[in-house]
């Protein structure tokens, strides 16, 4: 009926923004969360979302490690690859995938193509693979 994940997200933002747990404020938050318009696209599956949340938490230390690696060893090489989107992703999950890839400093998504591929831009240390477009099927491995 109502996307409860959607509501939860709105309420989290509301409580973080107002930092006030008085009954009146809780009431306003719940009312606003219900009144705001909702999209009617495909429903997200809770399990997928929990998985993505876990991946985001993992991505933070990975991002810092990559940053340190880039600082101590220069990565002068630029490479473009194509990565396949995992099957059965809703739009929200695709957005989160793009977010995860772009969040880590060594990779940036250039383009999401409708036929199920991402164009990903990398910085690398090695001299080989000079700037050409590579095709790879599986999930990303550096």
């Amino acid at each position: 009926m109502i996307g409860y994940l959607d509501l939860l997200l709105r309420l989290t933002i509301w409580f973080l923004l107002t930092a006030d747990l008085s009954p009146a404020n809780i009431f306003i938050g719940v009312a606003v969360a219900f009144l705001l318009p909702r999209s009617s696209t495909k429903r997200a599956v809770l399990k997928d979302w929990l998985h993505v949340l876990w991946e985001i938490l993992q991505a933070i230390p990975i991002a810092y490690l990559e940053a340190l690696e880039m600082i101590f060893r220069p990565h002068p090489q630029e490479v473009q690859t194509r990565e396949q989107v995992k099957p059965n992703r809703t739009l929200g999950l695709i957005f989160l995938d793009i977010f995860l890839i772009t969040f880590t400093p060594k990779t940036i998504v250039l383009k999401y193509q409708e036929d199920g591929w991402y164009k990903v831009h990398w910085v690398r240390r090695q001299r080989r693979g000079n700037g050409r477009v590579q095709e790879r099927g599986g999930p990303e491995t550096p």
Partner: peptide
């Protein structure tokens, strides 16, 4: 609460802006 909100929105907006600029 506000700083956590700042942290989350910073991460999201900056990443999305990076994607949009790219």
């Amino acid at each position: 609460p506000l700083l956590v909100l700042a942290l989350i929105s910073l991460a999201i907006w900056n990443t999305v802006l990076g994607y949009v600029l790219a």
